Amino acid sequence: MELSRDVEIDSDVERERTGTVTNRDTIDLNSDVGESFGRWELGDDAAILDLVSSANIACGFHAGDPTTIGRTCGWAADRGVRIGAQVGYRDLAGFGRRFVDASVRELTDDVLYQIGGLQALASATGGRVTYVKPHGALYNTVVHHDDHARAVIDAVVAVDPNLPIVGLPGSTLLALAERRGLRTIREAFADRAYTPEGTLVSRREPGAVLHDPAVVAERVVRMVTEGVVEAVDGSDIALDIDSVCVHGDSPDAVTLARAVRDRLGENAIRVASFT
């Protein structure tokens, strides 16, 4: 799929022209990809990568195998899409959606291992890892779990302190990362329901995942232009974000991402990477 020139992903050109990329007229759109395993395929990564500006690529612990991961890195590099390490608990059977009671040392080493593996595969395809984002249960845990948040941060600092960390606004992860001098990227979710407290509704609850493209797209426009999202109780939650995620493992992921991108374009909001 060829993107039209007026919505082309090219954050470097925009920076050279204006000196910065602001959320008033641009937003990063990211998606989880590289989550297939062997002959088992999950999501249409090639199609998603035509629509997003950042790719959260699985690192083998919650999903993905080396061939799948390397191929996805190549697709991202070919499209000029930024590559991020989506690190998770060592939980292939549970797709990384189950809490693992690891020590700080164990989790730090696991995250180090994942980032390093993705760096090698990305480099081999002409790409490079430019940020880190926790996945699944780890993402939700580091919203409030000091030790596991610190483990992720320790790993990033050890690998490359210039790597930004993506997380939920107001989370322990981002607060501790900022104290360590790391750049933080505040993220919202296009296709997930929110509690009144600003956290994600558990996937075990009905209505946790949204599927209507029109509803999802309009929610994203409000996130970007008004800085709010509607919670499940009907209240509006304030959001200050740098990136929006569309989950790549949903059956309707491509349709949702295209609807979001089209609606953003209708509102003169350009999709561009935060890096």
Score class of each variant (00 low, 15 high):
91 D>Q: 09
224 V>K: 01
11 S>F: 08
177 A>K: 02
184 T>Y: 03
14 E>Y: 07
75 W>L: 15
7 V>C: 06
133 K>E: 15
7 V>H: 08
121 L>I: 10
114 Q>E: 04
185 I>V: 15
149 A>F: 01
92 L>C: 04
23 N>M: 11
137 A>Q: 07
48 I>D: 07
17 R>L: 15
157 V>C: 05
194 Y>P: 08
120 A>S: 03
184 T>P: 04
97 R>A: 02
229 V>F: 09
98 R>V: 12
249 D>C: 03
74 G>D: 06
112 L>S: 07
35 E>D: 10
106 E>A: 13
111 V>F: 06
141 T>F: 00
145 H>K: 02
121 L>H: 01
95 F>E: 02
84 G>R: 02
90 R>N: 09
187 E>Q: 07
130 T>G: 12
225 T>R: 15
165 I>K: 03
227 G>K: 11
156 V>I: 12
110 D>S: 12
44 D>M: 03
49 L>D: 04
241 I>K: 03
124 A>K: 06
266 E>F: 00
222 R>T: 01
207 G>M: 02
252 D>F: 00
30 N>Y: 00
227 G>W: 11
105 R>P: 00
43 G>S: 07
123 S>R: 13
262 D>W: 00
274 F>C: 06
271 V>W: 02
7 V>P: 00
188 A>M: 02
119 Q>D: 04
68 T>Q: 11
182 L>V: 01
124 A>G: 15
144 H>R: 12
26 T>N: 13
44 D>Y: 06
25 D>R: 14
36 S>Y: 12
101 D>S: 13
126 G>Q: 04
250 S>K: 09
39 R>D: 13
